[in-house]
């Protein structure tokens, strides 16, 4: 599915740069080790402004999903309906990422299944983390 391009901003640049290297990084507080996503200028738990980016394993599980039939993004409308799943990271199930789950049939999302990260190019070439059900052989992004 052709996602819109991404123009990294200061807050998220490390995340997008890592994606271009097929790495998944998440912001982590140096002081209290709390992981947070989306990123923020300071730790949302302890308020420390010393945050770093930690590389994740790229493994997770499907927490939940919906099927989008009426998408507000023009570029995606031709592909309706499509899955949008919420993935919980293996390192911290409180950290969520969205996924179109390439290779998983529409509305046949196995909630609780293990997934692994892949990376796919958006419209401007910026890579974005996507997720594939482990063992799935459908079409999708490049392997991590």
């Amino acid at each position: 599915m052709p996602k819109q391009g991404v123009v990294p901003d200061d807050l998220t640049r490390p995340f997008w740069e890592a994606a271009n290297e097929h790495r998944l990084v998440i912001q982590s507080c140096v002081a209290c080790k709390h992981l947070q996503h989306p990123p923020a200028p300071v730790c949302r738990v302890c308020g420390s402004d010393t945050v770093e980016w930690k590389e994740m394993s790229g493994r997770g599980t499907i927490y939940n999903y919906g099927v989008v039939h009426d998408c507000p993004i023009r570029l995606l409308q031709e592909d309706q309906p499509f899955n949008v799943a919420v993935v919980m990271l293996a390192e911290d199930p409180g950290i969520q990422m969205y996924s179109h789950l390439p290779g998983t049939p529409v509305d046949e999302v196995p909630v609780g299944a293990e997934v692994e990260v892949t990376f796919e190019a958006t419209a401007n070439g910026q890579m974005v983390p996507e997720w594939r059900v482990v063992g799935s052989s459908g079409e999708g992004g490049e392997p991590a």
Binding site: K3, Q4, V6, V7, P8, D9, L11, T12, R13, F15, W16, H37, P38, P39, G66, V68, C71, P72, I73, L75, L76, F82, V84, Y98, S99, H100, T122, V128
Partner: peptide, 11 residues
């Protein structure tokens, strides 16, 4: 980049 973390998936 920040908006994209939510919006890229077209929900």
């Amino acid at each position: 980049g920040t908006a994209a973390l939510h919006a890229l998936w077209g929900t």
